[in-house]
Design a protein around this nucleic acid. Structure first.
Length: 528
DNA sequence: TCCGGAATTG
DNA sequence: CAATTCCGGA
């Protein structure tokens, strides 16, 4: 067997280092072999990687319901997987066995009745894998949650749209675009304010998102539930650049090509903080790059998925700062000078002007991009980005921190044909047994304990969170729909209003979960 | 085609 | 621990 152990996958462009995260990550974060846990690419990572690459559209592709994908060519997928894992005898039977193990972990589930069709539980994946900010004790966000029946848990109080607006001042509640909130016609009340779930699809279940968005008037998103703010913040880690190219289990098969720089991570994409706004070509992006300009992104700009992205909290001694350190130039430069300079230099060709915001490929928005439409209309390539930045310190909310960012790209991957197209005829039917849910792993909700088994064990009490944050796991791309409904930015420097940031986080001892919990509790009390 | 148990692997 | 391998059963 010619197991050179490398598929062509992910070896695509010999991308230059555009950005490095600086000190925000521990060494192992860039070295999959040294990451905690399995330290090797996980199958679902791999699946997502394939899904993200248009050249594999004929092998595996998003199709059907939100998060649903079809393995069009099981043998080829198995072959690629076998190559990646140096398992020359891999076949679909074995691969599917591995996929079946994901059922229990709720990473995947099978779409019954559809051959080779599975569905990601993105909510789970995203939330579990992006515990960037520990704000469990400062609950105020809402989202639907199938598992608590809409009831606020004792630890999680409801929040008003105004509160959220405070946290995300750049999300206008009025102006050119629809508000982040849709205020019901009736009097304010439980049903009066609804977050636009299409603005935060990761907060909603894929199932309902899909069903509600295409025809909101007929299928309005369900009313809110309560979700701890960390849910909203966690996706910040979606910015994380990929180190997928580090993941080759075998020696660099590309002599002369830089594949892995140990200790000096080489990322193909900078993290992104795109505004949650409509495309506005005239908008003057301070770093000289307008992500909304046509051609700003190529498909290759789609960042690979970060492999083990479950970075434990101690990587972020200072959450705000850590968040900023993930951001592209204009934002990261808000960091104290030492910080940003260090970071700027580790990356080599790290020039702000050349740094393209990363893109996160996500499943196509079914209502918009039917697969295999042959490139008609939207099918060709309709991309969208959503970004959410939040400034302010959540003053009225008792929040211990106040920066959140979300950036997501939508990659639909049009109708390109795949390397192989041996097996065809996967039917598409509207049936879906989606069980996607908002899973809040924080203390915020105590109802989801048995839903937290993302191959993790939840210990009772605060230990559970620490456990989660320590756990190793994978990550995945964002799951966001086109964000064409958000209004343009108000200011190119939304974060400038932030006061001086805390000193370099570098070696400051991180707060423990419990400590932060206490702090937040204290703040809450102080503000209540 | 899909499922999940069981043993094994690295 | 996350598969891999094998397999009997639905």
């Amino acid at each position: 067997m010619d197991c050179n152990c490398v598929s062509d996958l992910l070896l695509t462009p010999p991308v230059p280092a555009l950005w490095t995260p600086g000190i925000a990550f521990p060494e192992w974060a860039y070295k999959p072999e040294s990451s905690p846990g399995s330290r090797q690419i996980q199958l679902w990572h791999f699946i997502l990687e394939l899904l993200q690459k248009e050249e594999y559209q004929g092998v595996i592709a998003w199709q059907g319901d939100y998060g649903e994908f079809v393995i069009k060519d099981p043998d080829e997928v198995a072959r690629l997987w076998g190559i990646r894992k140096c398992k020359p005898h891999m076949n679909y039977d074995k691969l599917s066995r591995a996929l079946r193990y994901y059922y229990n972990k709720r990473i995947l589930h099978k779409t019954k009745g559809k051959r080779f069709t599975y569905k990601f539980n993105f909510s789970k994946v995203v939330l579990v894998n992006y515990p960037l900010l520990d704000m469990a004790s400062s609950p105020f966000l809402l989202a639907q949650n199938h598992f608590n029946g809409g009831a606020a848990t004792p630890d999680c109080s409801p929040v008003t749209p105004e509160a959220l607006q405070t946290l995300f001042p750049r999300l206008p509640d009025s102006g050119r675009g629809p508000s982040l909130f849709e205020r019901g016609a009736g009097a304010p009340g439980p049903e009066g304010d609804k977050l636009r779930l299409d603005s935060f699809p990761f907060l909603s279940s894929g199932h309902e998102y899909v069903k509600s968005t295409p025809h909101p008037e007929r299928n309005p998103p369900p009313p809110f539930n309560f979700v701890c703010p960390e849910v909203l913040f966690r996706p910040l880690l979606l910015f994380f650049p990929s180190s997928a190219s580090h993941e080759y289990p075998c020696p660099n098969p590309f002599p002369g090509r830089k594949v892995l720089i140990e200790g000096a991570p080489c990322y193909s994409k900078p993290p992104s903080l795109l505004g949650p706004y409509t495309r506005n070509p005239s908008f003057d992006y301070p770093w000289g790059f307008n992500p909304y300009l046509p051609g700003a992104f190529s498909l290759n700009n789609c960042p690979k998925l970060p492999p083990g992205s479950l970075y434990s909290s101690h990587f972020y001694p200072n959450q705000l700062q850590s968040s900023l350190s993930q951001l592209p130039h204009p934002f990261s430069s808000l960091l104290p000078p030492g910080d940003s300079t260090d970071r700027a230099q580790t990356g080599g060709t790290n020039t702000p002007s050349s740094g393209h915001p990363p893109r996160l490929c996500i499943p196509p928005y079914p209502g918009t991009v039917p697969l295999g439409n042959g490139g008609t209309g939207l099918g060709e390539r309709e991309r969208g980005e959503i970004g959410v930045t939040g400034g302010g310190l959540g003053l009225g909310l008792g929040l211990g921190l106040g920066l959140g960012g979300v950036s997501v790209g939508l990659g639909t991957g049009g109708g390109r044909q795949s390397p192989t197209e041996r097996r065809k005829g996967v039917k598409q039917d509207p049936e879906s047994d989606s069980e996607l849910e908002i899973t809040d792993l924080s203390d915020c909700s105590s109802d989801n304990e048995n839903e937290n088994d993302f191959s993790l064990r939840k210990d009772p009490g605060l230990g559970a969170r620490a456990h989660l944050l320590q756990a190793k796991s994978g990550s995945l791309g964002a799951v966001l729909p086109p964000l064409s409904t958000l209004p343009p930015p108000v200011s190119p420097h939304p974060l400038k209003s932030l006061g001086p940031l805390t000193p370099p986080m570098s070696r400051s001892p991180p707060l423990s979960m419990a400590e932060r919990h206490r702090d937040s509790e204290t703040l809450k009390l102080a503000h209540s």
